[in-house]
Simulated scan of single mutants.
Amino acid sequence: MSEWSFILRLNQPLTAEQANAFDHCDAFADGSVSYVLGPEHPSQFAVHTDPAELSELSCDIEALSFLDAVAQVARDIRLIPGLHAVSVRHDDTVTLGEAAQRCDRNEESLAALPGFPEPLPGPPGATVFYSWRKIAEFLRSIGDTVPETPRELAVADQVLRLAHELETLDVAPGTLRALGLPTGTP
């Protein structure tokens, strides 16, 4: 199994009640999924949280594939009343291992490439991070094929967006079947 890192966007920011349910849900007890909870009265604070972060989960999931990892969190988040996943993305900040996973190379071969991008600034002894955007640009410049969006990420994102849209529409089961989609009934 591999560990897959991604950001899962929710249909809404977590409320205090949903955060409490999340904190007490066995599916999230291992700490592999985290959230940012905004203050109850944001106008009373000098520093404001980015509103987008309040609707996102940071995920580091062990699974056989990226799609399996996304599906696991998307399924588990539905255990919290009122929440569901609406999209998924990769973060730009990556470790060398995450970068290697995204480009189907190993860490050693990446680090050995002449001109490989420098790590992002950070405190001595801390985990070393890189900009995925810079790594992808570099790899493309030396002839590697690195898609703007990895295929599994694009598929997972499209499926989550479609599922979210279908929840807001009244679509007949026959129409869903004709489109090749499950209807939830045998």
Rank of each mutant, 00 (worst) to 15 (best):
F45E: 15
C59V: 05
S131L: 04
A156N: 03
G184F: 02
A52E: 15
C103Q: 03
D23K: 09
T175S: 11
Q101H: 10
D23R: 13
R105K: 12
G115D: 02
L169N: 08
T168R: 11
F138Y: 15
G97M: 02
V88P: 06
V146I: 12
P51E: 09
G174Y: 03
A100N: 07
V159G: 03
D60F: 08
D30Q: 11
S141P: 12
Y130C: 06
I61W: 02
R89K: 14
R161D: 03
D76R: 02
V47S: 10
F129Q: 06
S43F: 09
S109M: 11
C59M: 05
P81A: 01
S109A: 13
Y35K: 06
E40K: 13
A99C: 10
R161N: 08
D30W: 15
N11W: 05
A163G: 10
A85V: 00
A178G: 15
I7K: 03
R177D: 07
R105H: 09
Q72Y: 03
E165C: 07
R151A: 15
V146Q: 04
R140C: 01
L153D: 01
V33A: 08
P39F: 10
F22R: 05
A126P: 06
P186V: 03
M1V: 05
P186Y: 05
Q158R: 15
C25R: 09
L113C: 01
V73L: 05
C25H: 11
N20S: 14
E98I: 04
V88N: 07
A19T: 04
A21V: 14
G97K: 07
L64C: 10
P186R: 12
K134R: 14
A27C: 04
Q44C: 11
T95S: 14
F45W: 13
L113P: 01
E56L: 10
P81D: 11
D92S: 08
